[in-house]
Structures are given as structure tokens and as C-alpha cells.
Write a protein that binds this DNA or RNA. Structure first.
Lengths: 207, 207
DNA sequence: GTCTTTATTACCCTTTAGGGTAGTTTTTAG
DNA sequence: CTAAAAACTACCCTAAAGGGTAATAAAGAC
């Protein structure tokens, strides 16, 4: 079991405490409880959690949504809104920030737990989509002259930051051979250095 | 408007033609119509589309689902199932392959169009998650000694395959300065070459 | 105002990478 | 079986990157 650190952003201390207790009972760790947007942003920067519980209506406004936007822009973290079904307009704004879930007040222990679990799970799924492994089919369909299997093997090692020497050792071939392969790879991918090669690979993998 | 090339996999030629006509009427391009799994795989390899319309029940079996699995493993393409609500077990299998949508037979022109639009849109959203831009906050929270703004600027250029000279030109500074920055960056990120640096950046961005 | 961090530059030297040419050995396809 | 493609190797040379040291200027913190 991996520790999940939760940041609670809620301006009503009693509710915040309730949530904290419920979370701890369900094997979560509370990284901090904050009562304002500024404190929330500071916590995100200095003591980043794995998940954020976010009251939509902070200090009478929609500060929760502003925090959500910052999370989406600057941090790759899941967050769940705390909501009491206030006004519909706020809920529309909230939905557009793509929250991992909602906790509706008053909440039950089980409901909280379920929302958190789903949030963590969905975020793990999303994580898998980021920086996927190189795939020869995806790459080759963009190339006039496709990479051979061996060349693709070399490409993967370059992509993972290996030097020519390390590649030679890994593949049990001479460094001269490695260089020859890289020469051909550079031609096929129109690159002239490892780093431009890697940048091009990323591009090919997204299209 | 960008051309969307659609591969149709459907063993009943009449239905396939219907779909093709409807697609063309809705400004899609049909890259090919195939009637078997083997032909579908060949098309994916040799003439890759942007989207696949996939009959679940090909040749009496569940070949459509097998094709879907290959698409998920080897290609990063959205696909929509063609289904006639046959048996529930098949539908469960189909759901597990994460299709971008379903087209239910008999389909209407509008229904087809909607399903395709949604599929294309969702796929574009997913694409954004792949290989995201570097983010200094995300990177710095993993580092004991964070990157300065300038260093992060250099990092981004390295990440995009620029040489030291190009970086110097881009930032209007001396190549010696660039080298000094890179030296510090390497220390902070525990790297000793551009490519290991890039690999490490990827790793930091996913955690 | 001083101290610290960041940014800037220079010089030197070593290692790594990249590009050209050329050759042999496997593998694979027709 | 033969031709073509892919894999492997060597050698040479140039360019780029990386690491050490050191010094000045600018910006921010206290």
C-alpha cells in the first residue's frame, strides 16, 4: 500500500477536521489543512500532496475553482471538489476544470472513501498516458524508410539516455556498429544529434 | 478543417457502403473498406487512418475486438465499434478495449456523425496528455536544489533538441554561459549528458 | 549596505558524438 | 539459389559536448 498524501482546502475548520479524521480512518495521510487560496498555493508549491480536497466556495467566492485552474496548469494532480449543491452556475464552472470527483456535503465515510479511491485510480490511468514507451509501428508509419528492428533497439536506448558505449555493451556489439546504426537512424529521422532525434521521436509518437 | 481519414472494417459490404456514403457526406475521407481482420491489420500498417470504424462481430466471431486490442497496443488511434446489440458478453469484452464510441445499427446519419465527432475530439484531448510540456513547478518539487528560471529556459531548449550554439543564439548569451548553465543543470538533475538529462526530465514529469 | 544567489563570460582540456568511406558477414525474400 | 537488405566492423577526422577553474556583474534578501 502506497501512502496517499491529501491536502484539505476548506475554510470551515469543523468540516475540515471531519474530513481529516475520515481520511485518516481510511488510511490516507493528511499533508495539511489550509483555509485560504494563498495558503493552498503555498502548500502545493512547498509540500505537494498526491491529491487535493477542494471546497468550491472558499470565503464566499469561487476561490476553489481558481485553485483548481492553477492545479491544472502547473501541477499534474487529481483533486476532488467539496460541494453542497449551491448554485448551478458554480457547478458548471467547476465541471469545466475537470475534477477527479465530487464529495457532496453532508458526506458519508464510505462516500468519501469511494470518491478518493476513484480519483486516485483515474489519475493513475491518466499517468500511464503520459510519456508512453516508443512504439516502432507508430514511428515507422511516419517514415519513408522505416527503422529496422536493430535500429529501433538502438533508438530506444538513446531515448533512455544511454551513451554509445553503453549501447554497445547492452547489445554486445562494437561501438563502431552502434555509430553506423545511429548514422542511418539520423538519416531516416532527419536528425543530426541525439537530442534532436529524441525531440523528433516525441513528435512522431504524438501524431 | 483537417481531413479525417477513416478505415471501415465491416464484413457486410452493403453496410460498409452505407457507412462510407454517410461518412463522405459528412466531410470524412474513407481511407479503405476491409472485410477481414488480416486486411484490417494490413491497412493499419500500410495506410494508417485517423480513425477506425470497427464491426464487433466480424465473420461470426469477435474478431473486431482482437483488432481493437492490436490498435490499443501498437497504434494510438481512436476507434468506434459498430454494434447491433447482440449478446451482452461481447459488449463487456468490447467495453474493456476502451472504444472512443459506439455506433448502433441501424444508425442514423446524425448519430454516426455525432459519434465520430466525439471520438475525434476525445482523442485530441488524450493526445494533449501525451508528452506534455515541461513544467518548472513539477520538476522543481522533485529537486533538492531547484532550477532557476534561466536554467529552466535552457532546459526547455535542450529538451527540444537545440544545440549549445542554438541555445546561445536564442537567449542572446554567450555559448560559454550556456555551458555554465548546463553544467549546473547537470549537477542539479544528476545527469552527465543531454540525453540522460532528457530521460530524467521525462521521469520527473510523470511522478 | 552588505551578503548571497544568479547570471554572465572566458580559457583550457578531455571525452563523446557525428559524418565519410569501405569492407565483410548474416539474413531474408523472391 | 541468388540478389538485396540488414547487421556488423574498422579507421579517420571534425564538431560538439562536458568538466574544471575563475572572475565580474546584476539582482534580491535581510
Amino acid at each position: 500500500m502506497i501512502e496517499v498524501r491529501v491536502l484539505i482546502v476548506e475554510d470551515e475548520p469543523l468540516i475540515a477536521e471531519d474530513i481529516a479524521t475520515a481520511l485518516i480512518n481510511n488510511d490516507f495521510t493528511v499533508s495539511a489543512i489550509v483555509y485560504s487560496k494563498d495558503d493552498a498555493l503555498a502548500e502545493l508549491k512547498n509540500n505537494p500532496p498526491d491529491l487535493v480536497v477542494l471546497d468550491i466556495n472558499l470565503n464566499g467566492g469561487e476561490e476553489g475553482i481558481e485553485i483548481a485552474k492553477v492545479i491544472n496548469e502547473k501541477y499534474f494532480l487529481p483533486f476532488v471538489y467539496l460541494t453542497s449543491y449551491s448554485d448551478k452556475l458554480t457547478l458548471i464552472h467547476a465541471k469545466n476544470t475537470e475534477p477527479a470527483g465530487y464529495i457532496v456535503k453532508p458526506f458519508s465515510d464510505a462516500g468519501l472513501f469511494a470518491a478518493m479511491e476513484i480519483a486516485v485510480y483515474n489519475h493513475a490511468q491518466k499517468s500511464k498516458l503520459r510519456f508512453p514507451e516508443l512504439n516502432d509501428d507508430v514511428i515507422n508509419r511516419h517514415l519513408p524508410s522505416p527503422l529496422s528492428e536493430r535500429e529501433f533497439g538502438v533508438v530506444q536506448l538513446i531515448y533512455n539516455g544511454k551513451t554509445n558505449n553503453q549501447i554497445a555493451e547492452d547489445l554486445f556489439i562494437s561501438i563502431n556498429t552502434v555509430k553506423a546504426h545511429i548514422k542511418n537512424i539520423h538519416q531516416k529521422l532527419d536528425a543530426d544529434s541525439r537530442s534532436t532525434l529524441i525531440a523528433r521521436l516525441r513528435k512522431l509518437m504524438t501524431n
